[in-house]
Design a protein around this nucleic acid. Structure first.
Lengths: 229, 229
DNA sequence: CCAAAAGTGTTCTCCATACACCCATGC
DNA sequence: GCATGGGTGTATGGAGAACACTTTTGG
């Protein structure tokens, strides 16, 4: 079936840029390549699309197989189709980016995957193929999108403080935000549930915990509301 | 080479959503399919990616071969990878959208192409495959992007009036804009050259002609300027 | 009592919006 | 002279940005 056309077909792969957030740092999940080409180099988790699965499904499958992650936010990023991007063979890759609630999932990659490791996004090792370029596009997209779509919550645990949320935005956007203005704006949007519960185990005044309420968000969007931070 | 891997490969295609703008109407360029499947149906111009060309190059080539268009704005849109999107065979397509200065290019598609035809974007016939869905994504993207990146000028001739620019934005955004506020904002951005030349051949007071100045735009962007309309 | 972060209001500036009339031209 | 769009200014309200101190808690 793959040779039904008279022209040869490029290979089709998926690659996932996996972001996490932990203690004021944006993190990136990388795997060590087990096979040639680029054996032993750090790379984005990914692999070839199979004939019976959609490209989206391929991305989820590879993510699960290579890192143990499942049930996370995953969205198509961009397709990289340069002729020479893969040494030795013609491979086009559809890149995705994933957002992971690190606190929940921390243990799983280590157990299931060969060598999936979290790196601070600011200290990423050299990457195989054009994965460095893919990462750059993913960072740009994340920075752009986080401001007008509430995807930042995908990086936080279900219960979080306003300061954690603010630190997340500061880490992604790369600049400090004013505490009072930030809180005012976030609370005014009325997207968060006040969980009436306090942070525990900190050695300073405990902060209130909040939860993102997707129902409220969807309702507001229907009424023409635009998230913006 | 295409059978070097043990697994069969999906086919890889490109499709182009081509937008034009003419007399207050957003237009879409479609071709009639000459081959099965979907022979005789209207479809987006497109075709298979060859092994020796990048995906971007494939999109440009197909656009030229099927519509005669060259040298136009062309940008990747999204990759459509559902298993059943192409009847009978597994084909993944990388969709692009093109913006055409219709006044310049009006004659060319008719001469070079089999049957490339402009349709008002509001009166598009049923499309082959999932091309209707691709069109919807392209419209959403155009509507979103036109507001914060100056791509609207790609749809206008090199010399245009402020009213033409306003009508373009009204057509894309689907709502009326205030004339005075629109002109104030556009001129305040200082992206346009006043060509000190008047419109000709109209039966009312002639309007001033302006030109978009990409140099000014790039300079302003370097200084942190953000286009927004 | 000290360190560390939580929590809280006001002022000012600027930008978006709303809005109506005279002008130039072709027929 | 009339129909058609071209071209212009002002007033108001709302949102973003700047800014500092008190409170709570654990150690």
């Amino acid at each position: 079936m793959s040779c039904r056309y008279d022209r040869p077909r490029p290979g089709l792969a998926v690659d996932c840029v996996v972001f996490g957030f932990d203690e004021a740092d944006l993190k990136l999940l990388l795997v060590e390549r087990a096979m040639s080409p680029c054996q032993g180099h750090w790379a984005l988790p990914g692999g070839f699309v199979r004939i019976g699965e959609s490209v989206d499904e391929a991305a989820r499958r590879e993510l699960r197989e290579e890192t143990g992650l499942a049930g996370v936010f995953l969205e198509q990023l961009f397709t990289f189709g340069a002729v020479d991007r893969h040494p030795g063979d013609r491979v086009v890759t559809v890149a995705y980016y994933a957002l992971v609630k690190l606190a929940d999932q921390r243990t799983r990659p280590a157990t299931e995957a060969r060598a999936a490791t979290w790196f601070p996004a600011s200290k990423v090792p050299p990457l195989a193929f054009d994965h460095g370029q893919i990462l750059q596009v993913a960072l740009d997209r994340l920075r752009g999108k986080v401001r007008y779509v509430p995807i930042g919550f995908e990086l936080l645990p279900p219960k979080f403080t306003l300061s954690e949320l603010q630190h997340l935005y500061e880490a992604i956007l790369g600049r400090p935000l004013d505490k009072r203005n930030f809180r005012k704006k976030v609370l005014a949007m009325d997207l968060l549930d006040d969980l009436e519960e306090l942070q525990r185990g900190v050695r300073h005044r405990a902060a209130r915990l909040y939860g993102f309420n997707p129902r409220k968000y969807r309702r507001l969007v229907k009424q023409g509301f635009n998230f913006e931070l």
